[in-house]
Design a protein around this nucleic acid. Structure first.
Lengths: 335, 335
DNA sequence: CTGTTAGCGCCTTCAG
DNA sequence: CTGAAGGCGCTAACAG
């Protein structure tokens, strides 16, 4: 398994081609005017020697790394994976690479990551669904020269943003309305712990009250944003509040946990219990009964975040935002 | 959104602390002997000035980027996402970051990526389930100083490997045996297009023949490794070969497509058609009927790949490998 | 159109 | 234990 090779440098190419290193540099970067025969000769040598510029050297002098940092809470969740896919796609088109950081839903880790991914490491940063409170997040963001947040409101001076057209709690609000219209009387809510895409207990209570429905603060629970979380919290909720006839889940994986817990408890879905999920993941459509959910343009969210970021990296210091829409998809799990 | 700041350099710190830049360097890298009071003073200045070393400069001189490149065919597939999670986890422990490259199941793109991620970009590379034929893959790999492949046999001189203990076609072979033992008579196979974890048509035919069962070359199909692929290919297969009573699918998402196609066609699973999937994804367990599949230690695969790679980066030029086991999980979709 | 000069910020080497 | 010199590979800014 021994392999090594001396790095071929600009000078090597220059010497071999009988020109100065600047000429080679210009050929590579397609900058400045170069005689076409010189260019051809240099190109030939570059290929022959298999020369490839050193990113480190270039970065040192241009202070451009051509790297985009992406911070996500859980790459294992297809929701985030598709966003990353979108970022990667656009980055690639612009000859940027993606530095992925998965914080494993661990705020400490997110904190560490945000302070380590400085401008000598990446040219810009996309922070997706940060799990940090403003008090810790904002100071960390201040140091980043180019920044885009996804699903997180921060001051416009700090970052461009990709977010829901209708606001952060749009999804749960619409889900609740849908359940109300479907005639559900006792609607529970599993809100995503630490996520910004969430409805507050107060708002939840207010909505149901306004609709003239019964509510209990107990029907609202914070829940880890995954299957296990949904399962555990729902088991508990179902045991303590068996009167519930429907549940708004923060995302699809939580909804799946809810579905499982409901099945275990012998509840028929949707007859005894209606469920609405969150993001339109493959899971949601393939499970039985198929889960009502929201279609979210995940790839496009990632792609737009990357575009906004590249704009900043390119020198545009204005605030920009991309608003996406998400619409309810009604399937078998709800009225 | 205007933000900028002059980079604080080693010299700045040195000047402020009244020492030479070398001393500061040594303090940062914990190298050489330094007087404890000097060290304390330097540390204080570092914190006060919020100094952070330039990765680019460091990389230029040490030719270490502290970056690990990971190439996956589809980050959207939880199977790969969990592997990436494992890589990221271990990388993080060792102060390495992960450069993610998603090739979108596009061999051209994989090719481009492999030739661009050279040693000035990453310290090493983990190639997961390459979709390239040996003829194009091997030459590309030769240039990488530190390399680990996952689920792909390459010459030991080229890379360390993480792979299935029982060989690349272990999964389909076991699945077929399981179906045979379950009394299935006409077993079809959806093999993953371009994947190395696959059984060949010849082997497939040989296995069934050896078991004294009927076979047709037509019952074996290559299939894109995702839900849509499984759905489309299975629709066709079911139309053309309605006699099949069971299917071995290359992975869970394909199996899900198969399940869907079967349902559409009015086939009951497993009564009319048994299905075995591939990797133990959340999907497989939550769908109805729950899919038989194989449990694969995805996180651990990624983690071990990272460990093997770090070993190489650390200078160990021996060949190493990590063999993992995967066992059949029988659920409702098969006998 | 092409070459020269001067660093980018850090670490290696060798002196003290 | 600490410092001075030199250079990693590249490009910006001037020459010509």
């Amino acid at each position: 398994m021994a392999k090594k090779r001396q790095r071929v440098t600009l000078e090597d190419v220059a010497r071999e081609a009988g020109v100065s290193s600047m000429t080679v540099s210009r050929v590579i970067n397609n900058t400045g005017r170069i005689g076409s025969e010189t260019r051809a000769r240099v190109r030939e040598v570059i290929n022959r020697l298999d020369y490839r510029p050193s990113r480190a050297a270039r970065a040192l002098v241009t202070s451009r790394t051509y790297l985009i940092g992406v911070v996500v809470p859980d790459i294992t969740n297809p929701y985030f994976a598709e966003i990353v896919q979108g970022v990667e796609h656009v980055a690639w088109e612009h000859d940027f690479s993606v530095l992925l950081t998965n914080t494993d839903e661990n705020p400490r880790r997110e904190e560490a990551v945000l302070s380590q991914l400085d401008e000598s490491t990446v040219d810009g940063l996309i922070v997706v669904s940060s799990r940090l409170p403003d008090a810790t997040l904002l100071p960390l963001l201040e140091r980043h020269p180019a920044l885009v947040t996804v699903n997180r409101d921060v001051p416009h001076q700090l970052a461009s943003m990709v977010r829901n057209l209708h606001g952060m709690d749009h999804r749960p609000v619409v889900a609740i309305q849908h359940l109300i219209e479907g005639g559900r009387q006792r609607i529970g809510c599993l809100a995503l712990k630490r996520s910004a895409i969430q409805i507050s207990r107060e708002r939840y209570i207010a909505l149901l009250t306004a609709a003239g429905l019964e509510v209990s603060p107990d029907w609202y629970r914070l829940c880890p944003p995954n299957f296990e979380g949904g399962l555990a919290v729902m088991r508990e909720l179902l045991a303590q509040c068996p009167e519930l006839d429907s549940i708004v889940a923060g995302n699809d994986r939580v909804a799946l946990g809810v579905l499982r817990a409901a099945t275990e408890a012998g509840r028929r879905v949707p007859a005894d219990l209606a469920i609405v999920g969150g993001d339109d993941t493959l899971l949601a459509s393939q499970v039985t009964p198929a889960l009502s959910t929201f279609n979210v343009p995940k790839f496009e969210i990632g792609a737009m975040a990357a575009r906004l970021l590249l704009r900043q990296i390119g020198g545009d210091s204005e605030y920009h935002e991309y608003l996406y829409d998400e619409t309810l998809i009604v399937r078998d799990s709800s009225p």
